[in-house]
């Protein structure tokens, strides 16, 4: 029976992989996809803690996580479409107006 530790390690691994993807890929879509991978790690952690404490709160939290993820995906994709229309490219390096 895998204990809490294994689930937490798995959650950390998924979160970290998503983080690496967010930081290093240049395609705007893949960046947000990596964000979703981070969400998966968080969901695993939340549910694992729910099981640890014998509460349903963790799962409720994970449910609201899903809502947030959906909202974020919708808005992010809308923005990606806008940005693509502006510059004609999906490159994140095209947007460095805040430099200096």
């Amino acid at each position: 029976m895998p204990g809490i530790a294994e689930y937490l390690i798995l959650g950390a691994i998924l979160f970290a992989l998503g983080l690496v993807g967010f930081l290093s890929r240049r395609n705007l879509i893949v960046i947000f996809l990596s964000t979703e991978v981070m969400f998966q790690g968080v969901v695993i952690n939340a549910v694992a803690f729910a099981r640890l404490h014998h509460h349903i709160d963790g799962q409720a939290f994970a449910l609201f996580q899903l809502v947030i993820a959906a909202v974020e995906a919708g808005l992010a994709l809308g923005m990606i479409v806008l940005l693509y229309r502006r510059r004609g490219t999906l490159d994140s390096e095209a947007w460095s107006l805040m430099r200096g």
């Binding site: 983080l19 930081l23 805040m98 430099r99 200096g100």
Partner: peptide, 17 residues
Amino acid sequence: LRPFQSGMLQGYALSMV
């Protein structure tokens, strides 16, 4: 210090991480 203000979101995120 100038490269830290590259205007690139991912650069800032890297610093935060």
